[in-house]
Every structure is written in C-alpha cells, then in structure tokens.
Design a protein around this nucleic acid. Structure first.
Lengths: 345, 345
DNA sequence: TTGAAAGCGCTACCAA
DNA sequence: TTGGTAGCGCTTTCAA
C-alpha cells in the first residue's frame, strides 16, 4: 500500500489539491478563507487516509529541510555525545531534526560527510573540530550559499563558533599539582593522529607550568596515544614503568583518565596517595569514579545548545558578523589529587 | 550565491540537462552512450561550478532517501550510544545516513518522532524499545507501506528484530551471588516510568532466583528509581540505610551500578568485601571502574549492526517472513563480586 | 471561496 | 549520441 498523497485527500474530500494545502497550512497568509464545512471534509479525509504530507516534496518546494547536520569526530567519546545531546534537545524544542554523522576520526570520511550533508540541503551545519583545512573548500561553499554554519571548538574562528577553552583549566591543573608538591608530572596526550592540534592548549599549559616552576621538561613524561580508554591504560602503564615514574598524571580527557586509573590500580598504587590524576572534560561518570576524578569541567550540553542557538540566530539574520559564544571551563578538584606530597625541595 | 543546478551545468557545458544526468549517473542502464568529449565537457562544468546534485530532488524523484531513522529512548545512556554507533558504522559502509531521534523517555515525543521520521520518507526505521502500544498505529502504517522496520529489544516481535536477552544473564547473576553465599540481595530497578516493562526479565530472574534458594522475598530490597547515575546512587543509599542492609546489590544497568558503587564507597564500605555489586549491559567503562564491574555483557554495537542488516535484508526482499537476529548476553565476573561471603546457612 | 497551473531539481522514457 | 519532456508531491500565485 502506497502512502496517500495530497491528491488522494483532495479526491476523497471532493476538493482540489490547493484547498487541501490551504486547510493544512493555515491558509497561506490571511487572504484565503475556507468554509468550516470544507475544512471538515478535508480533515476527515486526512484522518481517514492517514495522510501525512511528504517532507521530501515540501523540502524541494520550500528549499528548507528542517534538519540540521551534526558532525562529530567519533562516536566513542561520551563528551561528544553530551554535546550531541545538547544539540538534539535544543533542536527538538524548535521542531528541527538532527542528521548525525561521525567522522570516525578519519579526515576523508569527514570530508565525505560534509559533502553528503550539503547535498542534502540541510538548513545548517554544526561541526566539531579544531582542524579543518581539508574541509575548507566545502565549508566556504556552504558559507557562500549562506548556510548557517557553527563550529564547536577551542580555536578562534572566522565563522560562528561555540567556543570553549581548556587553557585556564589547564593552568589551574598545573598550579594545583605543583602546589601539592608534584615535581614529576606525566602527560597523556591522546588524540587522533589526524587532529594533532586537538590538545595543544593543554600541552602548552603543561609545558609552561613546568617551566615557571623551574622544572626541566622530560620528554619521557609525555605519552602520545590514541583516544580510547585502553590506550590511556597503556600510556599510563608506560609512565608507571619509567625508572622514576611520575607522581601525578594529567590526561587530556576523561576517557584516557579512566584507563590511566585502571593501570594505576592494577599496580596496587593508591590514588591519590601514591599518584595523582587530573583530567579534562568532566564527562558524566567522572564524578562517580573511584575515587572521583579531579578534572576540568566543560559544560558539553551547553556547548551543543549554544552552537544550535548560533545556527538559529544566523538563520534569522544571515548578515550578522561572525558570532561567538564562550562556554568557560573550570577545574573541579575531587579526590584523585587530594593528598599533598610535601615534597617541595 | 545560490547553489548550482543541473541546468547550470548543462548550460555551461553546452548540452542538455538529460545529458548531464547521464554523465553523472553512469548512463541509466547501458543503452545511452556518451562521447568521451561530451563527458569531459560536462565533468569540467561540474567541477568549475562545484555542482552537487540536490538530494532532495533526487529523493522526490526516486522515492528513496538513503536515510535510515534511528530512534533511541534517551541520549544519556552509553549503552544506547553504543547501539547507535553500531548502526552508524554499518550504515556508513553502505552509503546511508542516520537520522537520529531521541524519545527523551517520553512516549509523546517518541510518537512525534516516529511521525516525523515517516513524513520524511526514510528508507527504514530502527527502533529501540520494548513497549510500543502507543506507536502501534504508526508502525502498522509503516509496515503497510512496506518500509523496513527493525526493532532492537528483548521481547518477541512480529516484525524484524535484533533481539537480545538479559534472562540467562540474570539467572547467572543470581546463581553467582547465591553461590557466594549472599542471602540478602538488593535490586535497583531503574527505568523510565513510561517503560515499566523494560527490566521485567531481570526482575523475574531475581525473584525466581531467591525463591529457588528458599529465600523469602523482601520488598524493601527492591528499589524502583529513574535512569540516571544519581538515581542509582540514591537507591543504593536507601538500601544501605536499611536496618539489615543487603550484602549484594544488583542494578539493572551499568549506569545505576556506577551510582550505587559511589554510594557504597561513600559509606566506607568495601566492594566486594562488604558488599557485592552486579549489573547489566557492560558499557565500555564498566571494565575500568574501580573495582571492575561484574556485569552481563551485551554486545551493543553488534545489536546495532544486526538491526541495520535486517533493514537491508528487507529492503532487498520485502516479502521475507519476519526475521530475528539473536545477540546473546553473558555474565562477566569481574571484581565487584569476588569474595565469597561464606555465609551459607 | 475554490481551482488551475507553474515550478522546485532531478531521472528516465521516447524521439530525433 | 543527444535532447525534449513528463512527473515525483507540494505550495502559492493568479484567475474564476
């Protein structure tokens, strides 16, 4: 059984297609008027047939799709899901839908996704990334077509952006650890090979923190790895196996911290008595880990909502100058960093 | 600047629209042939203009959208993301996209979502739920229109389903705990009020397990609550505050377990020495909790992939009888239940 | 107050 | 080998 069309409704109600459209769409402006009788005939036919307007045809006609594209780097990090959740909830209240795509940490897929999204005439695009040279061409085309485009990230941008920063948080983390007396601080710098810039802000703060405390950098203390819990686990294992292991480990996101904590537990080391851990993102479970994780909180849902609001602002007013919403982060000291080492030389 | 249409390409290449279509779509069947010269002219125009076919128009024309709808109950549970991730990855390899909707644990929203999805002429729908009376009407319409529809859940179904079961796992959990000597076992039964059936399988196994061990049921030991970590935390607190608290707690999913473990830690009780915890789902972080969580593993990504494969199977062959793919669960004993209580009477 | 018809961008049939 | 054109389902202008 095929789905009924407007035509079917019209026939059944004994009116023309246009009339059906009028009835359903609240009469174009205010010029067209419909008898209550006609209205009822039409509505009855609609119900009887279970008619639902075809969104595809409406889109072709109107040029809009009531859909916003959302491109996230990877589906395995809760932080991204929290952002997605914020986007979804904000869109839901406005009657828009999400077309979700994952770049799967792969620039080619990412490019492909943007292309697909743009062929689909989405009404706006929200993009999560820090590095987008490979998308420049596509994104510029989108901007030329006046498609609302909002970034979510940490870098400065010439297009609308919901921006957050790990910088102040990273500085606070370093200050905190140094004050606790840590002198050997490891950094687990996990990320996709293709987005190496991803955690630069945290790396820079780490280096500067050490420097300003007069501590010589030790490259062994920086572990580069991937993005999964397991890679955090391995990176931490390497750090712990060092001749003189660190007394504190910073991971650039909470997923890595979870892995690192596991590695520490397995070596029968106590957190924070033997070794402290600090991280970034504050995903939902971080407060519930054992012990609860010291981390830099970023309100990810708000980041998603903010980006969505940027999209709608631009939809309403395409000529605005580039907008930026800033969502600050802040250090939450929980119990992975509680015990002063009393080692200040 | 508007986006270029096929017409623009045709004009620039000095050919007709049809020719452009032929060139781009590999010549309808094999009947139409195009000179290499024409082909090149067209391709050049395409590149120069940055032309991309309008998916909206293609959809209207073809009746297909290359999009599968995915409806999940809630965006806050990693278990659902894992499923979504499986769906997404399977679709990605086939060139399809996901239109993601969340029911936000709200049946009205869920109904609305299904309606939206169906207006959009998605090529198939994957639905995560156990209870769907309120959707019956819509889903039947979809089936009549021969839209591939796949459920993901635990119940029997008359439509295609990627089915899993907590039952055997729940029985194994009870057996395990009873063998460890536990006599007072608490159950944290969290779920949305609107899907009360959600965890029935686990509840039944719990009751039967107790009964077959000759242990009288104690309603105080069953805590009903919501779906969040925090509600798991509160429910566990209630259990621990009982005059004679349980020596083991089962939560019906890992999110609740995380909260429960926190509540136990805060009371300075040791897991599993003082109290054991067992759960269901085995979300990614469960193996990395401290201590690692004993839980019934469900391969959520596979569940998502399986449902997706069902969709495509039906797309190819709409007349198949209802299909079912079963994804088994199994108990993974980690360290939240390790220590025998030695209390067997 | 209602209906006819153009046209959104595309594909594919038929004719040239 | 290429072009003309109908029609997918809808909205909206114009005419009746």
């Amino acid at each position: 059984m095929k789905r009924p069309t407007q035509q079917d409704v019209a026939k059944r109600a004994g009116v023309s297609r246009a009339t059906v459209s009028y009835v359903l769409n609240g009469l174009t402006d205010g010029y067209v008027t419909i008898t209550e009788e006609t209205r009822e005939k039409v509505m009855r036919a609609v119900v009887e047939l279970g008619y639902q307007p075809d969104a595809t045809a409406q889109s072709l006609r109107s040029g809009t799709t009531n859909t916003i594209g959302l491109l996230i780097p990877d589906m395995h990090n809760p932080h991204y899901w929290q952002i997605a959740s914020g986007v979804e909830s904000e869109l839901q209240t406005r009657g828009y839908d999400v077309l979700l795509m994952s770049a799967s940490l792969n620039p080619e897929r990412e490019l492909h996704s943007v292309q697909t999204l743009s062929r689909r005439r989405i009404d706006g695009l929200i993009l999560l990334l820090t590095y987008y040279d490979h998308l420049r061409h596509e994104l510029e085309a989108l901007v030329r077509q006046r498609k609302p485009l909002a970034l979510i990230g940490t870098s400065a941008s010439t297009v609308d952006i919901a921006r957050t920063s790990y910088k102040a948080g990273a500085v606070a983390v370093m200050k905190h650890l140094l004050e606790l007396g840590h002198r050997r601080i490891g950094l687990i710098y996990g990320g996709s090979l293709v987005y190496p810039e991803q955690g630069t802000d945290r790396l820079v703060a780490y280096r500067q923190g050490l420097q300003s405390a007069g501590i010589a950098a030790d490259d062994d203390l920086i572990q580069y790895c991937g993005t999964t819990i397991d890679e955090g686990y391995k990176a931490a294992s390497t750090l712990l196996g060092l001749a003189t292991p660190p007394t504190a480990i910073i991971t650039i996101n909470d997923m890595l911290a979870i892995g690192a904590m596991r590695a520490i537990d397995e070596r029968q080391l106590a957190i924070p008595a033997d070794i402290s851990v600090a991280s970034f993102d504050d995903i939902a479970m971080s407060a519930y880990l054992n012990p609860p994780l010291t981390t830099v909180h970023i309100d990810a849902e708000e980041l998603g909502r903010a980006a969505t609001r940027l999209i709608f602002r631009r939809l309403q007013n395409p000529d605005l100058p580039p907008q930026e919403t800033f969502v600050p982060g802040h250090l939450i000291i929980r119990q992975t960093t509680d015990v002063p080492k009393g080692r200040t030389p």
